[in-house]
Design a protein around this nucleic acid. Structure first.
Length: 212
DNA sequence: CGCCAGGGCCATA
DNA sequence: TATGGCCATGGC
């Protein structure tokens, strides 16, 4: 029984089965994954809302860089992200903007990592939450949980990802739910500024019981 | 006012 | 391979 699975049991007991990502469609999920890079989700929501009826691959591909940048302005880094959205959408076009057909993780992940603006976290998020493939997502929240709890996951994205996957059944629903629960936990309790360790589902194993 | 947010790219050593 | 600078908005 590893700490990885023990922590999951506690999170699942608190949050239940989330089966998550705040998006109405796979393409919206992909756009959100890029827009949320080092950005508060509240700002991503504003940018997504700015698309209106234009949250489509066609609009993103056809819009001028400055036009697209203006739409996503509230999400920050808008010039970079405009080009990133175009490049990831061009990649998605290879698959007819369709996530339904069977895809191999071993093919899609290297392809995504070769896309400008798609790093490991964004790639894994897209693969797990849009394509439904079993790859564990590591983000700043996951790193924070690892730092505050007795999880000897090693250092760096690849090591932490490998540690989680090695200690869990290779299951898409589980990966989805686990990462979602980590995000909820960090937003609700395990915050950087005002952590609520007393009420946190993981409070009993937290190394940071006291607030500075 | 400063710090932070669900990263990633690029230059440099 | 591993840092550091850079990108930028909005909430607190």
């Amino acid at each position: 029984m590893s700490n990885v699975s023990e922590i999951y049991e506690k999170l699942n007991a608190h949050y239940g089965d989330l089966q998550w990502w705040p998006a109405k469609s796979p393409y919206e999920m992909i756009v959100g994954a890029v827009l949320t890079q080092n950005t508060a989700w509240s700002n991503v929501e504003k940018a997504l809302a700015n698309f209106g009826e234009n949250l489509t691959p066609r609009f993103v591909l056809d819009a001028s860089p400055s036009e697209l940048a203006n739409v996503i302005r509230p999400a920050g880094f808008f010039n970079q992200k405009a080009t990133y959205l175009k490049s990831v959408t061009e990649w998605f076009a290879r698959y007819n903007f369709d996530v339904a057909a069977p895809r191999a993780l071993e093919i899609l992940r290297p392809e995504l990592l070769a896309v400008k603006g798609v790093g490991k976290e964004t790639a894994d998020s897209i693969l797990l939450y849009a394509f439904g493939l079993p790859t564990f997502v590591i983000d700043a929240y996951t790193m924070r949980i690892c730092a505050r709890h007795p999880i000897d996951a090693g250092k760096g994205y690849d090591a932490v990802k490998a540690h989680f996957e090695a200690n869990l059944p290779r299951d898409v629903q589980l990966y989805n739910n686990y990462h979602a629960a980590i995000v909820y936990t960090c937003k609700d309790f395990c915050r950087k500024r005002n952590p609520l360790c007393e009420k946190c589902p993981l409070g009993d194993t937290c190394r940071r019981q006291t607030h500075e």
